[in-house]
C-alpha cells in the first residue's frame, strides 16, 4: 500500500477503533468493588469518606485519604488504571482511628474508589472522580 497521508490517517483511525473495541484494561465500578467484597454488595453513602482532589496536577502523585469509622480494612481502587488495585489498609488493634492517607498514580481521568470492610462483615463504598491534567509542554 502506498502510504499517503490519507492512508496513514485511515490506518490510525482503524487502530484507534481496535483499541476501543477490545475490552479495556479498566474495570467497571461494580466489577472493581466486587473484586474486593468477593461478590457481596457494598453500600454507598455510609460513613465512609473518601477525599481526593477534583483535579490532579500530575497523575504521578495524587493525594488520597479515607475516613472509615467502624472499618476493619479499606481498599483503594483506581478503576481507570491498567490494574485497578492500589492498596489495602488493614487496621490493627492499636490503630488510633480509621483514617489513612497515601499518594497514588492515576493513568488518566477516572473514578477513585474506596471499599471499606466493616466490623460486621458488611461493605461500604465511596467514589470520587479525579481529572488528571496533562502538563504544559511536557518538560
Amino acid at each position: 500500500m502506498n502510504l499517503t497521508r490519507r492512508n496513514a490517517m485511515a490506518l490510525g483511525a482503524a487502530a484507534a477503533a481496535t483499541i476501543v473495541a477490545l475490552p479495556a484494561g479498566a474495570a467497571t465500578f461494580e466489577e472493581a468493588v466486587m473484586s474486593v467484597t468477593g461478590g457481596k454488595e457494598a453500600a454507598e453513602g455510609g460513613d465512609l469518606v473518601l477525599t481526593a482532589p477534583e483535579i490532579a496536577e500530575n497523575g504521578n502523585t495524587v493525594p488520597v485519604a479515607i475516613d472509615a469509622p467502624g472499618a476493619v480494612a479499606v481498599t483503594f481502587l483506581a478503576i481507570g488504571n491498567p490494574n485497578p488495585a492500589v492498596a489495602t489498609f488493614k487496621f490493627g488493634p492499636l490503630a488510633g482511628s480509621r483514617e489513612a492517607s497515601t499518594r497514588i498514580r492515576l493513568a488518566t481521568t477516572q473514578d477513585v474508589v474506596a471499599v471499606a470492610e466493616m466490623e460486621d462483615g458488611s461493605f461500604q463504598t465511596a467514589k470520587q472522580t479525579v481529572k488528571v491534567t496533562i502538563g504544559g509542554c511536557g518538560g
Binding site: N60, N81, V86, A87, T88, F89, K90, G96, A100, R105
Partner: peptide, 20 residues
C-alpha cells in the same frame, strides 16, 4: 499491630502513608 498495608504498583514513587 497498628496498620498493615498491602501495596500495588499504583502507589506513587517514594510511598507515603499517614495513619493514627
Amino acid at each position: 499491630n497498628v496498620i498493615d498495608v498491602t501495596i500495588e504498583p499504583a502507589v506513587s514513587t517514594n510511598p507515603y502513608f499517614q495513619f493514627d
